[in-house]
Amino acid sequence: MAIKDLPDTECVLPGSAACPGCPATMGLRIVFKALGKNTIMVVPACCTAVIESLHPHTSFDIPVMNIAFEAAAAGASGVEAALRQQGKEDTTVVAWAGDGGTYDIGIQALSGALERQTNFIYICYNNQIYSNTGIQRSGATPYGAWTTTTVGGKTEFRKEMGEIIQAHHIPYSAQTCVSYPEDLYNKLKKAKGIKGPKYIEIMAPCPPGWRFPMEKTVEMGTMAVETGAWALYEVENDKMTFNGKSKLILEKKIERKPIEEWIKYQGRFRHLFKPEKDVKRLKAIEEHTDQMWDRYRRCYL
């Protein structure tokens, strides 16, 4: 699959309310290219609820239902049940939520929907903060990152949502990144063809939230994968396979780059470098990433 082979379908119309350089619209464009127009999307409170723009117009050329923060998966379950009753089973139901609506507030509804074997795709675009409400800490925020509620750096490590999802033993779950459109497209195409609950998490580097220049969105995503801070993998019926650079890192064919290479470009980690380098905390981040990869190697190699 090359970029040339991706279809022309465009469901995100130009002139939306997204910030310049937004990874969410970038991801959404590829998601709709993969799923096509026969899709219903459920969006809880997140940046995407704003990107849709103001009533009476919307920027998304597919049916979208806005719903309360905690209810994305529950709403999608309802839509899926209604479609099943009407016999429209070829329509794809997608819940598209941010990391706040997945890791923290929406986890209860999500867990319920996965347990009920609802036939839908849950997509979490993970920008590691509550960006819509103005950069607050979430369960996905990494250790040491500045947010408006963790001044001086977060003191806890992020949780591994991918592994929580795997505990549900659903047919398909995957992690991907906006910087790898072919990978994202392939995973969504695969998810579309599988019956039952599917979970896909997309790493989405947020320029205003992470404090980096808006033209660097793609680079930040690539760096996250190359430094090992984010892993590209998919789990099909409890069988885990790593993709792309992450596979090479897992098999130790290439050495992962130091995390410092990634975080030094982000203003949210500035206090680790200025006025002097915080060696202790940088080491803690590095060690945590090593632990994560050791765990992956132990369990999945």
């Binding site: 119309l13 002139g15 723009s53 103001l54 117009h57 919307t58 998304f60």
Partner: peptide, 13 residues
């Protein structure tokens, strides 16, 4: 309340 798709929903960005 239903919104309908339109190019440039936030004006000429």
């Amino acid at each position: 309340t239903i919104s309908y798709p339109k190019k440039g929903a936030m004006g000429k960005t």
